[in-house]
Every structure is written in structure tokens, then in C-alpha cells.
Design a protein around this nucleic acid. Structure first.
Length: 369
DNA sequence: AATGTGGGCAACCGCCAACCG
DNA sequence: ACGGTTGGCGGTTGCCCACAT
């Protein structure tokens, strides 16, 4: 934040040689901008700055208006529902704050970004610091899921652009959702057939095989009762809390729907795959087009063969489904290979399709864009 | 009361894509 | 096709303030 008196910019930025102000906006500047915007509406921002008599660059005016002066802004703390939605949307969209903000009326991308970085991220990290280091080892087969560890796992995955994974027995799907800093909104999916648990991909890759995963009963996409039998979470917002809180808020029915939407594949691809009758031994992935994320993904997992990588990196149309009929192996951090599955199939979907699922949130009282 | 520290958040920076002449 | 301009976005900065010592 800069002081109001910080006229620091000595640059001539093309505004007639007038030195432009920087730093905090004064009430007088705010008044000028508000009056101008209410009278004339939004036009070219450099014109706004000039015509409103502001010694600011258009960009600064735009930012001030959008983030602070806009009359439809909702000020104040985020409600638990908004937190929930932000987490949900972030799990789908990653750091696409503008897209997240577009689905929270009255909230700005900057506000959400700050909220995420200051509050939610901190909570996730603090929860991860209290997690059990053995949360993902094979002993878990007889123990409850460590929510904290899962939160940490998801946090790490989010940091790496891998947003989550879901392993499902009856419908045989894993899903990981990734963020992407690219303009591509395409996501990918492979499906596999193993045990029935949501499980951090990073943990799986680093510490064990799918066979090591804790098992829930096969009652659909995720056995909510098993996963929810854990000790209560201490906060609304860790990533595992995302699941739990959603469950608590939405009830079992919606919980399943929510999970399908955010941690597994949305119904469209799940259904399409199942309808094709080729569910078994499929693996669901999603990966970003971000090269760093891809590097990390490839380095850690070696899950997918070159064919798949090529496919994932391709610009194939969304909602495509292919069947590689190849066996896929994963290699964990110790170099141990384990078989992920056969009859590998890839599914892509458009994140915008995913977002339709968000509209089912009962607390959203507005029209999604 | 003085000082240190960390969190919150407004604003800036730099990059990128779209647009336009 | 090309270069300049503009708008949009995500990341980062740095000040203010509350709280702890």
C-alpha cells in the first residue's frame, strides 16, 4: 500500500507529460472517479482518467473502480458459504481469481486472492503441519483417512497444479483436477479401477500404491460415511474440510454430487465412460498445460506413458474420449513400479462444463455467468 | 508505554492477449 | 503483417494496524 502523498511516479507515461499519482487514493480522487463513472459510465480507461481530472493512469482508475469503488461491491468478511464456494471453485479453477470472482457477486478477484493467500492458505498449511507423517502409508488400510494429511496433500497438489484425486471402487475412477495458468480450460481424465477412496495423488505417488489406500465401502463415488466418520474438523477450510463441510452442509445426496463435480469427474464424463462399458482399470488425471506443473507431474509419477502425455498436451477437442488399450504403470518416489491399469482411456472436459456443477450449490442465490 | 512482529489488504508491476490503425 | 495501445489478469509489494512481548 502506498501513501496518498506518494506521487512517486516520475515517469511520463504518455499522459501529456503529466506526472501521474501513485499510491493510495484520496477521498477527493475517489469522488472524482465515482462521479465520472456514474455520469458517463465506463469507457476507455485512459479517457476516464483524463476526463475525470485524475492524475492517474487508466489502469489505476480501472483497478480502483473495480476493486473498491464499484457500487455493487460487497464489503466485509467472507461468509462461510463464500469460503466454501471459493475453495470449491479454487479446486476446479486454481488461481484463476477472476473466474472465481465472477461467480461470487460483489467480490473482486483481488479480494478473493488476498483472502485465499492470507486466510485459507494459512489454514491449510497449519492443518498440514499438524498432520500425521504416516498418514498415507499402508497402515491406513485399517485406519481412518487422515483429513489433515489429505489437506496437506491437496495443498501440495494445488501448489503443483494438481488439484485433487479421487479413487473410486464401484465406478472405478480416479480424478485429479489441476489448475492451469494458461488460457486453456481443458482438463483431462483417465479412469482407473481400484479402491474407493479419495486420496492425495502426491501421497500415493510418493508413499504407496493404490493397493495401500484405505478402503471405503463401495457406495457410489465416494463413501461419505466412511470418510466422514473421522474426527470433526477444526475449521471450515482445509481441503479435506472441503469435503467434510460440504457434506455437512449439503447432505449426503449433494455431497456425492459435489464430489463428483469437484474431486472426481463431473457427471458428463463419468457417465460417458460408464456408458461405454469400459470402466475397469482406468485412471483419471487432469493436468495443467502449465509446463512447470507438467514437469512436476511427470517427474513424480511417471504414471502416463508418452502416448498419454502427448495426448494430454495436445489440443484435442474437449469432451473427447480415447482408448489407448495400453497398460499404464506408475513409479513411486522409491522407483517402485505399480500397475495403475489397463485399457487406459482419456477424457477431456471443459472446465466451463465443470462450473455448471457449481450452480447446484444451494446457497448460491444468483445466476452464474 | 515502548517496541517488535505478523496479518490484512490496497495498490502496483509485469506479462499477455485482443484490438486497432 | 506489424507495431502500438489498452484491458485484463495473477503475482508481489509494502504500509497500516492489531496484538504480543
Amino acid at each position: 500500500m502506498r501513501k496518498p502523498g506518494d506521487h512517486a511516479s516520475g515517469k511520463n507515461n504518455g499522459n501529456g507529460g503529466v506526472k501521474l499519482r501513485k499510491g493510495l487514493w484520496s477521498p477527493e480522487e475517489d469522488d472524482k472517479l465515482i462521479n465520472y463513472m456514474l455520469t458517463n459510465g465506463q469507457g476507455c480507461w485512459s479517457d476516464v482518467a483524463r476526463n475525470a481530472g485524475l492524475q492517474r493512469c487508466g489502469k489505476s482508475c480501472r483497478l480502483r473502480w473495480i476493486n473498491y469503488l464499484r457500487p455493487d461491491l460487497k464489503r466485509g468478511a467472507f461468509s462461510p458459504q463464500e469460503e466454501e464456494l471459493i475453495i470449491h471453485l479454487h479446486s476446479l479453477l486454481g488461481n484463476r481469481w477472476s473466474q472465481i470472482a465472477a461467480r461470487l457477486p460483489g467480490r473482486t478477484d483481488n479480494e478473493i486472492k488476498n483472502f485465499w493467500n492470507s486466510t485459507i492458505k494459512k489454514r491449510l498449511k497449519s492443518s498440514s503441519s499438524t498432520s500425521s507423517p504416516n498418514a498415507s502409508d499402508s497402515s491406513l488400510s485399517t485406519e481412518p483417512i487422515d483429513h489433515q494429511a489429505m489437506g496437506a496433500g491437496f495443498m501440495a497438489m494445488q501448489d503443483q497444479g494438481i488439484m485433487g484425486m479421487y479413487v473410486n471402487n464401484s465406478s472405478s475412477s480416479w480424478t485429479s483436477l489441476s489448475s492451469s495458468s494458461s488460457s486453456s480450460m481443458r482438463s483431462m481424465a483417465l479412469l482407473t479401477h481400484h479402491q474407493d477412496i479419495m486420496y492425495p495423488l502426491s501421497n500415493m505417488l510418493n508413499h504407496g500404491t493404490p493397493m495401500d489406500m484405505p478402503t471405503c465401502a463401495s457406495t457410489g463415488y465416494l463413501d461419505a460415511s466412511s470418510c466422514m466418520s473421522m474426527e470433526p474438523l477444526d475449521g471450515m477450510v482445509n481441503v479435506d474440510g472441503l469435503v467434510s463441510e460440504s457434506y455437512g452442509m449439503l447432505g449426503d445426496h449433494n455431497f456425492n454430487g459435489l464430489l463428483q463435480g469437484e474431486l472426481s469427474v463431473p457427471s458428463l464424463e463419468s457417465i460417458s465412460i460408464e456408458e461405454n462399458g469400459q470402466i475397469s482399470e482406468d485412471v483419471v488425471f487432469d493436468r495443467s498445460t502449465n509446463s512447470n506443473n507438467n514437469d512436476h507431474f511427470d517427474h513424480n509419477s511417471h504414471i502416463i506413458n508418452s502416448h498419454i502425455i502427448e495426448r494430454i498436451n495436445s489440443s484435442a477437442p474437449v469432451n473427447n474420449c480415447i482408448n489407448t488399450s495400453k497398460k499404464v504403470e506408475a513409479v513411486d518416489g522409491a522407483g517402485t513400479k505399480w500397475e495403475v491399469g489397463e485399457d487406459l482411456r482419456l477424457v477431456e472436459w471443459d472446465v466451463e462444463d465443470l462450473m455448471r456443477d457449481v450452480s447446484s450449490f444451494p446457497f448460491i442465490d444468483h445466476q452464474l455467468e
